[in-house]
Write a protein that binds this DNA or RNA. Structure first.
Lengths: 145, 145
DNA sequence: TACACTATTTATAAATATTACAATCTAAGA
DNA sequence: TCTTAGATTGTAATATTTATAAATAGTGTA
């Protein structure tokens, strides 16, 4: 199932003329399989054993490439480092401000907003990004003590 | 007009029990008057002449305080540094992926999404954040050459 | 107005995160 | 297989953000 996603992602790279290297393969695979939203450093560390001499720069370079191609979204968790998320369906994220947990939820894409923005600003809109913040049930419970 | 906003912001700080220091006053004033979306460093540099020995840490500390109180929103422009925006009405941002220009536009707050997210995830939702990406008219024109 | 208490600022330094660059290497088409 | 443009590595430089302890300054109270 996630193999289908990987195959589609690789095809999508091929279509755009982006070379498929072992590192890119591994980074994509990791992004798809990890159910989390890793930082560049998380990815680097996770692939260290498989690619003992991969450079951090490679991770950053490829995350940028994937983002440009539209395979990957960049999130902002709240701390100083960026998170990366493999784009599947139109899902959004709810982020716990206390413990940092991120929960995905599906929601019909907000096409109207993009359309509206395009009309008002004259921009050639390509995509949007939304995050919702709050406290998860666990943290909300703890706080009420 | 922006003086009203400043006064309201200061009152809001007072209500929350946050001390009003000259530095905080200046940072808020700068955020309100600058029609841009400055980075922490932009703010630091802009206030350098008025406060020759203000520390960068002070800027970061206060931006965090303002964010916690809800006076300021944090944006992600696309590069590695965070941008800060004084919260006025419920407006959103369209960001040009080519030149980086940010244009504000008003839109009725997406309460339904927050509500939906709260229901689905059980989170105690406090706020959300959305950014729209595309190319501005100028950049779209240049690209079509 | 002066005092006291505590939050805040400063001035570092340290920790992280991200980008730049040149040399080397390699994926993929001919 | 050969070629070549694009990718990776390794390193260094830069940028961003946080930590910390000492000094300072708001603000309520007497």
């Amino acid at each position: 199932m996630s193999e289908v996603q990987l195959k589609e992602a690789l095809d999508s790279l091929k279509d755009t003329g982006v070379r498929i290297t072992p590192q890119r393969h591994a980074i994509l695979e990791y992004l798809i399989n990890s159910m989390s939203h890793p930082t560049a450093d998380d990815i680097y560390k996770a692939l260290e054993s498989k690619f003992p001499n991969m450079s951090v720069a490679t991770v950053y370079n490829n995350l940028r490439v994937f983002r440009e191609v539209g395979l990957v979204k960049e999130l902002t968790y709240g701390d100083s480092s960026a998170r990366f998320d493999f784009v599947t369906t139109n899902h959004y994220h709810v982020i716990c401000q206390t413990c940092g947990k991120i929960v995905d939820f599906d929601y019909p894409a907000l096409h109207e907003v993009e359309h509206f923005a395009a009309q008002v600003t004259g921009f050639n809109v390509s995509h949007h990004r939304m995050e919702i913040y709050g406290d998860c049930t666990d943290c909300a419970k703890k706080e009420s003590h």
